[in-house]
């Protein structure tokens, strides 16, 4: 197995073997990220492909000032957002006000309570607007001001979307928990 430096050098030269090494190393991690931004794994794979094409074509611009993975992750997220913007016009807009207030106190999840698959599904089922904001805020750590810029929305929209996304998620998770309890009985 080659070191990351060799892989990087190979990718800069456009060597397919090096590209494969890089893909083989990071595609699973990156697909999981894409999956959070997509409505389905199919869509996530589209984003992954698009992102990797960008990575391979621009890898010579990677300055090496930070970890390669962070750079690739940023590209994937940008690709996902671009993808989301492109898809936006074709999508049915969910009514964002259907979320009811939840009485659930949000400090009640066991870490192993849900499988990754379940969690991915929940996130993918989230209304698009919620999902992007939630991902960027809760997982990528962007500020609402930055999210507003990235998603081309108002900063306050980002904030309200986020709290709604959060509530929406909680409800879904409660629902999942209830379903599981009913199944177990």
């Amino acid at each position: 197995m080659n070191g990351e430096k060799d892989i990087l050098a190979g990718c800069i030269k456009g060597k397919q073997s090096a590209q494969w090494e890089l893909y083989n190393r990071y595609s699973r991690l990156l697909l999981a990220i894409c999956n959070r931004y997509a409505k389905s794994q199919d869509e996530a794979e589209d984003i992954l492909q698009e992102g990797f094409v960008k990575i391979f074509l621009n890898i010579k611009n990677f300055k090496g000032d930070g970890p390669l993975l962070a750079w690739m992750r940023r590209i994937m997220i940008n690709t996902a957002i671009t993808h989301y913007h492109k898809m936006l016009k074709h999508r049915y807009h969910d009514d964002l006000d259907e979320v009811s207030e939840s009485k659930f106190e949000d400090k009640g999840w066991g870490e192993a309570e849900f499988t990754e698959e379940e969690l991915f599904n929940v996130i993918q089922q989230m209304p698009d607007g919620y999902r992007q904001v939630f991902n960027l805020y809760a997982l990528e750590g962007y500020k609402h001001r930055e999210i507003a810029e990235i998603l081309k929305i108002d900063e306050n929209t980002s904030k309200s979307q986020y709290s709604r996304a959060r509530r929406w998620l909680q409800e879904r998770l409660i629902k999942l928990r209830v379903e599981r309890i009913q199944r177990d009985e």
Binding site: Q19, R28, E45, L48, Q49, F52, K107, E111
Partner: peptide, 28 residues
């Protein structure tokens, strides 16, 4: 040891891995 929603998602999905289908590599 209970987590809130963000914590749960972060704990389980940040660093998660998913295997892409073989078609993805070919498509790239």
């Amino acid at each position: 040891d209970k987590l809130n929603t963000e914590e749960l998602i972060r704990a389980r999905l940040d660093g998660a891995e998913l295997t892409p289908s073989p078609e993805s590599w070919r498509a790239i």
